[in-house]
Design a protein around this nucleic acid. Structure first.
Lengths: 121, 121
DNA sequence: TCACTGTATTACTATATAGTGATATAACAC
DNA sequence: GTGTTATATCACTATATAGTAATACAGTGA
């Protein structure tokens, strides 16, 4: 028996509140520094200090970005002694980033091909 | 025969340039106003004027946001007489927004359940 | 030509936030 | 207790950008 379709989530205009919430989540992913941190966390759990070291960024800066990512539900944190361990809390993060990267790759290949058609200077 | 796996896109740290590009694309989606415009465009092509009317925003404001969305490759524009028609150029936009909305819905349901466990004031 | 319309652009203000150095806090070792 | 370490927070500056009013521009019709 064919699986019954879920009731289509009505395509109504989203409320301003919902738009804000979605925008806030995208905003969390809209800074190179935060993407760099997420990129590192995709390799596994890191402490804040390890991230500071690996990313080559200021400690206060990293701490603020991590707090923002946590508030957006992207990462989780657990304290262990003096250290705070950070980890990706939402598998969607990986999906979103990979989707965007895939898209970027396609665009760049298209541009590369276009360049190839242009007589070299 | 099981489909041969594509060569895994090596999980190397992304270059600063790539991080910038990905961040820029997420940034295009990180404003409620732009999401509102995209939301309208998901219903079909609109002119700039129609979007101004439907969204209840200033004309200059809408024009700027649309330009930004076009530069990010999210929408396309075609001129027809005096009007400029806008349309979603990248199906990824729908996917991304739906993914984020789905996530948001799950979070809100979780919170709703948590609230239900709290004695009413 | 002139007037009108739809859109883009300019110039500006107000706000948000990335980055930084200094300081506060908290858990450990002694 | 003191000192040290890892992290968070504060205060600040610099930059980016959302929104707006005025203006420029381009296509249309007279």
């Amino acid at each position: 028996m064919p699986k019954k379709k879920d009731p289509e989530p009505a395509k109504l205009p989203m409320s301003d509140k919902a738009l804000e919430l979605v925008a806030m989540r995208f905003r969390a992913l809209s800074e190179p520094t935060r993407l760099k941190l997420l990129n590192l966390l995709m390799l596994g759990e890191h402490t804040v200090g390890q991230l500071v070291e690996a990313a080559g960024l200021g400690q206060a800066n990293v701490s603020k970005h991590l707090g923002l990512l946590r508030d957006a539900g992207m990462i989780g944190m657990r304290k262990e002694g003096l250290s705070t361990w950070c980890y990706i809390a939402d598998p969607m993060v990986n999906e979103l980033c990979e989707m965007m990267c895939r898209r970027l790759r396609i665009e760049m290949e298209t541009q590369a091909r276009a360049l190839a058609l242009v007589p070299q200077i």
